[in-house]
């Protein structure tokens, strides 16, 4: 059996484990795993859909051109969720180990483990792309901050009036 075929045959198991692993980085893992309605569970469904797409792309290999789309979904989420950069990206790496475990566990596919190099390289590319996207998202958050400040919303807390009034009150009291 070919490696690609073996991975393809095991795609449901692998992606499932991958999703479970990724969602395990949240406290409410159980809910995120179970609730299938994409509107009632945006985190869970985004992770699931994106990893599924990403896995198909990883199997194709190549230069990793299409990775950005599904990765962007995941990184948009994880870059605003109190993860450190490494925590945010780490679950992507997990698919290497998951694939290896699954192939090694089956006699028929055990020998294919040594051929995983290309697949793992594809994962590496995805992880690198994810770092870029993580940073893009972070920068975007800061740009939005600046935009808000520029739009004048900050006047809410930067105007001087109450403290000025307070000074007047103090003057009266003195």
């Amino acid at each position: 059996m070919e490696l690609t075929e073996a991975l393809h045959n095991n795609r449901y198991t692998i992606v499932d484990k991958w999703v479970v692993y990724t969602l395990a980085t949240y406290q409410a893992t159980d809910f995120l795993n179970k609730e299938k309605d994409r509107f009632a569970n945006p985190i869970g469904s985004t992770i699931r859909t994106s990893l599924k797409t990403l896995f198909q792309l990883l199997l194709k290999g190549g230069d990793g051109a299409g990775y950005a789309e599904p990765l962007s979904q995941i990184m948009h989420l994880r870059s605003v969720q109190e993860f450190t950069p490494s925590q945010a990206v780490a679950p992507l790496n997990a698919v290497k180990h998951i694939a290896r475990d699954i192939l090694a566990a089956d006699k028929q596919t055990k020998d294919l483990v040594k051929d995983l190099y290309d697949f793992e390289f594809a994962v590496d590319l995805a992880v690198l792309a994810a770092f870029d996207l993580y940073m893009q998202c972070r920068e975007k958050v800061y740009r939005i901050r600046i935009a808000e400040i520029k739009s004048g919303a900050a006047i809410l807390t930067d105007s001087a009036c109450p403290s000025k009034a307070l000074k007047n009150i103090r003057k009266i009291n003195e």
Binding site: K34, E35, K36, D37, R38, F39, A40, S45
Partner: peptide, 15 residues
């Protein structure tokens, strides 16, 4: 009330 769009198996439908 749930929407019509589901991803994945419908086993936990309207849990």
């Amino acid at each position: 009330t749930k929407s019509e769009i589901y991803d994945g198996p419908k086993i936990t439908y309207e849990s």
